[in-house]
Design a protein around this nucleic acid. Structure first.
Length: 576
RNA sequence: CGGUGAGUAGCGCAGCCUGGUAGCGCACCUGCCUUGGGAGCAGGGGGUCGCUGGUUCGAUUCCAGUCUCACCGACCA
């Protein structure tokens, strides 16, 4: 490709509205341009990288016996009403009407559509296992789109759906996809973790997320430093053992705590550390049911765990008025004792063995001291409802400690069970002629997001450092002086030879000063660069620079070509 | 959805308080010069000042409405 005839609109200045590095660099390198909030044009360079990654995904999907197809991005409301998600999905689902006033939506995912197709076509156990996938543009009307391709509203996703005769077979399909995902992200040279995850609005029994480690990641994850346990904090189980009872219970005592509304205030006022107090939170369901959650003072509530333990769809903090009605007290002095109205009380596991702790008295400026669970109050249940923290002991091996990371979710695999096959009535006949529900799994990869995550992980002050498998071009040939006929002729010959070898080359033939060309080539992240100048040519040499390491070699022309060929070939060959 | 802020040339910004018809840097075009890390000189093109209405002799500037965008909040009892 001739740079002068291609389209790479680079910019020197960092656009003011781009916060994270990948967004800034994708804009500066001319890969994307914003059309509207969370909606982007993919310019040629951006598209090339995206296609590269898509094709890696396709290769691995095909290798894992998934079959490519393509479903529509516009979907009829009926299917969503049938599955129950038309009501459940909320505002993220972009809905609209056609000219006949019929309801439609932009597909945020395709479980309904694929299940509908499968229930019409798959009738026998002989037709399974089967797994369909597609690479499709999705639309989710995010509350707050940001970070460029990282959290767009319109985005490209690979999604796959497996169909099996029973749970055991479905587990096999799941494992196959899990392994394919491992290969995909390894092939891209990403530093990532597969972690246990909550299933969220997709539903299902269990799932793993594939997380690219990056400080800018929107998710917190933990991994054990001794065993293989790793999980999203939303899901991570608390493995900390109960503290042994260390003190004699003292008589309960009501104490004035004027204006001490936070745990930190109360603890400081009483001369305690916050882990010796109990914090009380009140939450409500959509229907207005309330629940009181008790946690050790230094811990955070995990809303997802609480929600799941109650079996509620949605959860929100109670308002001041609701709290006043329930406890008779303003915020800051809440506790499980002497409630005005009866409510469910759920305490975190670690609250059970606390001794002589502190809770609010449900009365302004008052707390109870020397409170002892089960003696002074009994929660309805003790459940793990807190967020794990760094250095918690591992819930699996109990030997290691948990480490915390930030991660970007680039892939997610789910075991769906029969959730959708039941709601959409997708059944087959087994070997005994008996009708059974199909077992499903679904598997997503954010295509654009993975490219962004890769940039997040691979860049320096000068710009992007693409790994060869997803770089828009493998190598650039930079002619130092476009007016020097000898340099141009030699550059072109090198360019053609490399292309003949199947290498994707960007030939920078522009009539620009060398500095401009070097800056652009660094910014757009081409992994290998051959510089052709008159001085080097006098000795029959060109310069090979490796973007990632900064390593520079002056080599005879043929050797340089061979070296590039060898480096590209070995980078693209994936070792099993 | 709430809070804050911003919309002026392709990009980044100034001007607005104190109304008189718009400017800077980069980018772009022409010419000269230059060619190993975003050069220099000279000349030039490009703006319904987000949109609608109001006040005024006159509005980018003041007022009202509206649209768009960005940032913050939804880690707390």
């Amino acid at each position: 490709m001739l740079y002068s005839r291609y389209f790479i609109p680079t910019v020197k200045e960092t656009p003011s509205d781009a916060e994270v590095i990948s967004h800034q660099l994708m804009l500066r390198a001319g890969m994307i341009r914003k059309l509207s909030a969370g909606i982007y044009n993919y310019l040629p360079m951006g598209l090339r990288s995206i296609r590269k990654f898509e094709n890696i995904v396709r290769e691995e999907m095909n290798k894992a016996d998934a079959i490519e197809m393509l479903m529509p991005s516009v979907q009829p409301a009926e299917l969503w009403q049938e599955s129950g998600r038309w009501a459940f999905y909320g505002k993220e689902l972009l809905r609209f009407k056609d000219r006949k006033d019929a309801d439609f939506c932009m597909g945020p995912t395709h479980e309904e559509v694929i299940t509908d197709m499968v229930r019409r076509e798959i009738k026998s156990y002989r037709q399974m296992p089967i797994n369909f996938y597609q690479v499709q543009t999705k639309f989710r009307d995010e509350i707050r789109p940001r970070f460029g391709l990282m959290r767009g509203r319109e985005f490209i996703m690979k999604d796959a759906y497996s169909f099996d005769v029973d749970s055991l077979a479905a587990d096999k399909s799941y494992d196959k996809m899990y392994n394919a995902y491992m290969r995909i992200f390894e092939r891209c040279g990403l530093n990532f973790r597969a972690v246990e995850a909550d299933t969220g609005s997709i539903g299902g029994s269990s799932s793993h997320e594939f997380m690219v480690l990056a400080d800018s990641g929107e998710d917190a994850i933990v991994s054990c430093d001794a065993c293989r346990y790793a999980a999203n904090v939303e899901k991570a189980e608390s493995g900390a053992p109960l503290q042994p009872v260390s003190a004699e219970p003292l008589p309960i005592q009501k104490t004035a705590t004027p204006n001490m509304k936070t745990i930190a205030d109360v603890a400081a006022f009483l001369g305690l550390t916050s882990d010796l107090t109990v914090k009380t939170l009140v939450y409500c369901s959509e229907e207005g049911d309330t629940v009181m959650a008790l946690l050790r003072g230094d811990h955070e509530l995990n809303e997802i765990k609480l929600k799941n333990s109650l079996g509620w769809n949605e959860i929100r903090m109670a308002t001041e008025e609701e709290i006043l009605r329930l406890t008779g007290s303003p915020i800051g002095f809440l506790g499980p004792l002497e409630l005005k109205e009866k409510t469910t009380v759920i305490a975190d596991l670690l609250v059970r063995n606390m001794v002589n702790t502190v809770v609010g008295a449900n009365e302004i400026d008052m707390h109870f001291c020397n409170v002892n669970p089960s003696r002074d109050f009994t929660p309805d249940r003790y459940v793990d409802i807190r967020n794990v923290v760094a250095n918690d002991s591992c819930p699996r091996c109990h030997e290691g400690k948990l480490e915390m990371w930030r991660g970007i979710e680039v892939g997610h695999v789910f075991k769906l069970g029969t959730k959708y096959s039941q709601s959409l009535n997708a059944t087959y006949l087994d070997a005994n002629g008996k009708e059974q529900f199909i077992f499903m799994g679904c598997y997503g990869i954010g295509i654009g997001r993975t490219v962004a995550a890769s940039i997040e992980q691979n860049h320096d002050d000068n710009g992007i450092i693409f790994p060869i498998p997803i770089a828009p071009f493998h190598c650039s040939v930079v002619a130092i002086n476009a007016k020097d006929k000898g340099v141009m002729a030699e550059s072109e010959e090198i360019y053609l030879k490399l292309e003949e070898l199947g290498i994707e080359v960007l030939f920078d033939d522009r009539d620009e000063r060398p500095g401009v060309k070097f800056k652009d080539n660094d910014l757009i992240g081409i992994p290998l660069r051959l510089v052709v100048g008159s001085k080097g040519l006098a000795e029959g040499k060109v310069e090979l620079k490796i973007r990632a390491t900064g390593e520079v070699m002056s080599l005879p022309i043929e050797e340089a070509i061979a070296m590039v060929h060898q480096m590209v070939t070995s980078a693209l060959k994936y070792k099993e």
